[in-house]
Amino acid sequence: MSMNGEYLRVTPAELERALKDPEWALDLADEIRDAQEESAPAPAGARHFTTQQTWHLLGFLLQRSAFPVDIVHGEETLATDDWGYGPPRYLTPDRVRLAADTLQQTTYDQLIQGVDPFELVKAEVYPQIWDSPASLEWARDLFTPLADLFRDAASGGHAMLIWID
């Protein structure tokens, strides 16, 4: 079974409710994910988004570039319940805004510049497929949609729930 990075855009009121009732938040995430499978909205208009298995590579690259927000794992714990591979975390609307602003100024080429695939092997970045410089291209197609998701969430004043499933 693979590990996938999952994101759910929520309003401040939904975040407040989720903090009080994490089980409700998990039900909301499942409901939105199921609804989007049928409608397949663009990432900028979506409430749910997955970075699939690229989450760990993106996290490594963003941390290496001193990105100011942990957009891969979230920053605050939402609940102690396990939503797959650990508890869900979240970003407040202010942190979503900072992430969106910084993502707008960041290109994928900047993130991979100077990265040696051996660094990924040494850091045990999941999944361990780092056999050539071309393997760094793997997350490129998900980086821009992730930035779009954050930009749209920030423009709506939304928070973000984040978990690995």
Rank of each mutant, 00 (worst) to 15 (best):
E31D: 13
T80M: 03
E16H: 05
F49S: 02
D81E: 07
Q52G: 09
G74H: 03
Q63F: 06
T54F: 12
Q53H: 14
A13L: 15
R17I: 02
P87K: 04
L62Y: 05
L57T: 01
E23N: 11
G86L: 06
P68D: 04
L58I: 05
F60S: 02
L78N: 00
V69D: 00
G59H: 05
L78W: 04
A40R: 14
T50M: 03
T77M: 12
D27C: 11
D30R: 13
D82W: 04
A42Q: 08
A40V: 14
G59W: 08
L15K: 08
E31M: 11
P87F: 04
L15D: 11
T11A: 10
A46I: 00
E75I: 00
R64E: 05
L78F: 07
Q53P: 01
A13P: 10
H73D: 09
P41T: 00
A18I: 06
F60T: 02
H73T: 09
L19Q: 15
V10P: 10
A18C: 13
A25T: 03
D21S: 12
L78E: 10
E16C: 05
W55D: 11
L62W: 09
E16Q: 15
A79L: 02
A44H: 07
L78M: 07
Q52T: 10
E31I: 05
H56E: 15
A13W: 09
L61G: 02
A13D: 15
F49A: 01
L19A: 05
E23Q: 13
A46D: 10
I71A: 09
Q36N: 07
G74V: 07
